[in-house]
Every structure is written in C-alpha cells, then in structure tokens.
Nucleic acid binder design. Structure first.
Lengths: 361, 361
DNA sequence: TCTTGCAATGTAAACGTTTACAATAAATTG
DNA sequence: CAATTTATTGTAAACGTTTACATTGCAAGA
C-alpha cells in the first residue's frame, strides 16, 4: 500500500508538502497541489489515520461507555453523541459494560490505550477509582446520566431523586396509598437508588407508611418487570399503583398485570421513568418521568468537546425532571370499593428539593 | 507520559524485552518479567495501542456501519456485534448513515483510514461502488441485513421477499383482500423493496388485484407509521389489513388506527416485520416476521472474524424468515358486513420460493 | 572440560505521519 | 534594481511500538 513518500516521489515534492496538501491545502500553491493530488490518484494513496494519530497523539476518536446499547435510552443517547461527534469529524468507539463495574474499568483502560481523545461514561458505580484516576490525570471525560452534582466533574443528568418524588406524588395525588416500586438493583445503578429515595421521601411526606414488601428489585428488562409485578401483586395487601424505575420495566409490568387479569389503568396505575419512544405509543400510554435521551447524549458530547479544547472548567448540566401524565395512571378503586378513610396530607415543604445526591469523594 | 524505553531503561533491559513482557510474557524469564513489571508501575506506564497499531498495521478495531443506532433492530444487532467482538478483545467503532448513501461512502472511507481490521455494513443502497472497491482490495467485510444472495460476499440476512410473502399470505388466509402496505422508501433500502415484492407476488398468487392506492411509502419511524395509516384509511375503499415493512411502523400504525377510532384487531389487522422486543409486549401483541437481530449481529461478527483470519471463503448466512402469529391479526369484518363473495384461491406453487434478490454486478 | 543446543535477551531498522526549522522562491517596496 | 518581506517548499527528527536477526547465557551431554 502506497504512502506519503511514494506520492512525494512521484509528484517530485517532499513529504512535508504532501502532508500539507492533506492537512492545510491552502498553504501550498495550486499548481503543486494539483500535481500532488494527481500523484495520489495514480498511487491509489490511502491516508493512514493511525500513523497520524501516532504522530500527533490524537485519534479523533472518543469513547462512549454505557451499560448496554440494547436499552433504548442508551441507544438514543448514543445517537445523540454520534451525531454531534460526526459533525466534528470524530468517530466514537462504543463499549458496553453490561452493568458490571469490572467491565467499566477494563473498558476505560482499553479505550485510553487506544488513545481516545475523550470519554463519555454512564457509570455503573462510583465506588471504584476509575473516575478519580481520570480526574487526577486531567483526562477529558463527562458523566452521562450521573447523579453526582458536585466536584470538578462534567455531568449531564436528571435529578433522579426529584423524579422519584414527582412520580410518587402524582400517584398519591390520585388517591393511591398502596404504591409499589419496581427498581433496578441499587448495587447496579445509583440512579435507581435515588429514584427509590425520592419515592420513599414522598411517601413519608404524605404520611404513607413505607412497606418494604412493595419494593421489588431486578435488572432492567421488560421480562423482569413482568415477573416483578406478579410478585408484588401476590402480597397480602397488594399495591394499586406501581412506580417503575424505568420504562422498560413499566412496559413489562403492563404485560404482567394484564396477564394477571387486571385492567389498566383502573386496577393498577403505572408510572415509568425515561419516556422512551414506545411509551407514548403503547396503550394505555405510559405516564412517566421524562429524560430526553437524545438531547442528553448530544449535550454530553458538546460538553466533552469543550473540555477537550480547554481542559479547565467542568460543567454540570442537570435537567429538572418532569412528569409526563398520560393514560396509565388514574384514581384507585374505580369499580371497586374505595378505601376512603385515607386522605393525603400536605407534605413538608422541604422534601421535594432536598436532594442529597451522592458526592464523589 | 512514559514509554517503553523509559521502562526499559529503569528496568535495565532492552525495549524488546519490555515489549515481550507485554505481548508474550512467558517468553521472558520470571525474574526479568517481575523487574519489568515493577518498572512499569513506577513509571506509571500506559500502553500505547496507537503506536502498536501503527507498527503492526492492525488496530484491533472493527467498524460497524448501520443506518441508525436509535432503531431497536440495529441496536440489538450492534449489541450482538459488540458482545462477540469484546470476547475477542476487539473494539467497535459505530457509524450511522442516517439512510444516506453518501454517508455510507464517507464513513467507510474514514473507517478504513482509521485502519479498522474489518467492517460490518448494513447497506443503504447497493448502487455505489463502495462494496466493489472493498471487494477488489480484498478488505474483509460482511453485509448485515443484506438481500444479496450471490457473489463472493459474506452476508447475513433474512429472505425479505419470503417474509413479505408470508406476512401477506397470513392475511389472505384470514380472509382479507384489501391489504395495504406501509413500506420504507425503496430508494432508501432494498430490504423494503423486497418485502413489497413478496407482498405483491402473494397478492397475485391469490388473484387479489394490486391497488397502488394501498401502498404508502415513508421513512422508518413510529410517527411515520401513524401518519401513513391515516392516509391509507382515507381512500375510498380502505384496507382491512396492513403489512408494515417494520415493527416501528406497525407500532405507529396501531396508534394511528386507534386514533381513527378503529378497534384492533377487529377493524384492522396489522403485520409487522422484525419482531423487536416491544412487539410482543404491546396490546394486541404484534403479528410479525421474525428477524433475530441480536443473533444476526453476533453471527455477522463471527463471520467477519473468520474472514479476517483467512480472507479466502465468503459465507452466506441467510435466515429463513418466519411468521410469528400473535394478536394483531384476525379475520376481517368481525362485527361488520362481510364481503363474502371473495374466496381465496390456491396460489401458484412457485411463487413463494421464487426469490429474485438483486445481484451485485 | 568442551561442545552443542536452546532459552533469554539485545540491537536496530521499520512503520507513515507531522512539524520545527531552514532554505528557497516570489512578491513588494523604496 | 536591490532590499526586504512573505509565501512556498524542503530537511530531518520525532512519535512508541514490533520484530528479524544477532548475541549471549546456561544446561545437558559427551
């Protein structure tokens, strides 16, 4: 395969000139440029970006580390990252952690060995020192879907605590007081933990006793949601509503609930989290907490590029979580006896905004 | 940042030895190895895969070119590719074409400049000479979701023609004879074209007149499906069933049909194509043609790795398309007057297997 | 003890760019 | 037209590995 020196020889110029034709065409006289381009064609010259990367210590490549591209939320975000990066002529290497910290660790290592110029990471856990290392070395990276709100980190995420609170409050306001939650394993994702925290805080604020029987923890998939809701429905005093820590679970819950003979939403109100595209297409359309995945991915990329240019000032871009009310939630007990001795109380005013997201030490 | 020579110096060995410690640890005596490893730690040595790639002309990276990662089918496939590649310690660079041939062209170029070791491509069009070039140069690549069945190409795909035929036949068998189709633009994807071809052939085989008013062409999204079905429903003699060239469209059709006041499946039978995960979770669960996206991605990766090892023998892995009958299809006119003067005839026996997929010239 | 052979290590070139600096050519100025 | 400035091109080192080949060290066999 021909190289820059072959081209140079053929065109009767130096390699430097050829390089210039490639990188800053206007710094070379038109006549020479044409000569060189002709030579390139004759040689069937193929640029070697690897050699360039080696010489310049830049790969024009960024890494995207997410739990699983098969989850629509992450796929949407990936699309956002991609689209932004493509506009800057940068490629993205995708890495899936499958929600395992060790994978995250080894992935980051490999990507850095590949000399990616920056990293966008959806952490599975903040326990390890991957981030700390990156930080110490001043390597540009941004956390996507992170809950961390402080520290010298660049972050784009939503307020998961608040989302959990809002979702629950919506159900309470409709009159529910047996509200279950189906959550991802807390060990797997602190996002889920914060959502649960919001849920719990809200219950407390409205003086609804927390019943740990109404919490199911699983992994993030429709199948899991379907199984989990059946478990929840089996307890002695089953919930009239469930809050799911993502839409995938919620979709599964719909299926499971119907298989158990429940009508939706009359017999079971369901709230999700994410607002993936299908959620608005399903019947009944899913009430959920919106997380604009595409935009978040895009924004993360934007932040990363800023960071790569001037490594100084990290930015936090935290979205206010927002409740999208659709058809999957309604007042409880329609067509059934209503447990009317319950009336929700005013919440303590601080609860909603008292988000104690974890801080990276 | 420290390099192999720093380490070598510190450990009192040659760079060759350090390199050996990295690449074939057992070819060096244990004592030396330990010395080297200790030196690496002290230097905080970081391996430079870019330099390696430069030296060896291998990047341990493959490229995956798909229309859009936000489409669940491609996301699943990407996951399959990823998972397989990860097992081989290879990373994947993701590229989205947004269904545009020019993008595909430039993407392939960029990825080759980056010296990916191989390519998995879901073509948008077989018109251009991207593939021909790759082929001529003996560059390893496999086509994913391709319809091409001949030529020295490695391919994994399903028989789209047959899928279209089966879907349509299912509807005919249920008694439908006003069967619409919502397809992706043929210019955008030959997959859609072949599915339509199967649809048309099936109609002919059962002596049902083809009505081009019942064909709607759009891009691939739920929104488009929703809009398209409304258009179809508006014609003078509207369809009692529609075949959608993918599940995303079908999901949109469900929404659109219901918004038009139709009951599903009584007033409109719907068949999709792909069998994405949500399709079995939706109500009514979607009848569709199965395309095992994850496995296909995995298989494509497997084929690619074979090809990268011994560039000789391309393989075709064409799946037999399979109809998954669920709840979104039923006999027409339930609760309405039945147009009973129609009885389907036996089809000509050749039609189903006469797949004339296009051949790359 | 001397060979012989193998295992472990070293030497140095090669990979294809970029880029600081030097050299030359062209354009401008007085 | 000479002097100066500016635009264009050339020279050569540097980037961090790998690897073919050469060398050395060591153990075993005679």
């Amino acid at each position: 395969m021909s190289t820059i020196v072959d081209v140079a020889k053929l065109a009767g110029v130096s390699t430097a000139t050829v390089s210039r034709v490639i990188n800053s065409p206007h710094s070379v006289r038109e006549r020479t440029r044409e000569k060189v381009i002709r030579a390139m064609k004759i040689c069937n010259y193929k640029y070697n970006a690897l050699a360039r990367g080696f010489a310049t210590k830049q790969s024009n490549t960024i890494g995207l580390v997410i739990p699983a591209i098969s989850n629509p939320v992450f796929a949407e975000s990936a699309q956002g990252v991609q689209d932004y990066a493509a506009g800057r002529k940068v490629q993205v290497i995708l890495g899936n952690t499958h929600y395992q910290y060790e994978q995250e660790e080894s992935l980051v290592k490999t990507l850095r060995e590949k000399r990616v110029d920056g990293l966008i990471i959806t952490t599975t856990s903040l326990k390890g020192d991957v981030l700390k290392d990156l930080l110490e070395e001043g390597f540009p990276f941004v956390l996507l879907y992170s809950t961390v709100k402080s520290g010298p980190l660049s972050v784009v995420g939503v307020d998961n605590y608040r989302g959990g609170y809002l979702a629950t409050e919506h159900l309470v306001a409709l009159g529910h007081h047996r509200i279950g939650m189906i959550a991802g394993n807390f060990s797997i994702s602190d996002r889920s933990y914060h959502r649960w925290h919001g849920y719990r805080r809200c219950l407390r604020a409205y003086n609804i006793p927390y019943d740990k029987e109404l919490l199911a923890q699983t992994d993030y998939s429709m199948d899991s949601g379907r199984d989990a809701v059946k478990r929840l429905l089996g307890v002695k005093n089953p919930p009239t509503a469930v809050f799911c820590s993502n839409d995938l679970l919620a979709l599964g819950v719909m299926k499971g609930a119907r298989e158990s003979g429940l009508r939706l939403p009359q017999d079971l109100s369901i709230v999700g989290f994410d607002d993936i595209q299908t959620s608005s297409y399903v019947i009944p359309a899913l009430t959920t907490i919106r997380q604009p995945a595409y935009e978040m991915g895009r924004k993360a990329a934007e932040l990363l590029f800023q960071l790569m240019e001037s490594p100084a000032k990290p930015v936090q871009w935290m979205l206010r979580s927002e409740l999208i009310t659709r058809e999957s939630t309604t007042a409880p007990g329609i067509g059934k006896k209503l447990n009317s001795d319950f009336a929700p109380q005013k919440p303590s005013s601080v609860a909603l905004n008292n988000n104690d997201g974890e801080i990276l030490s």
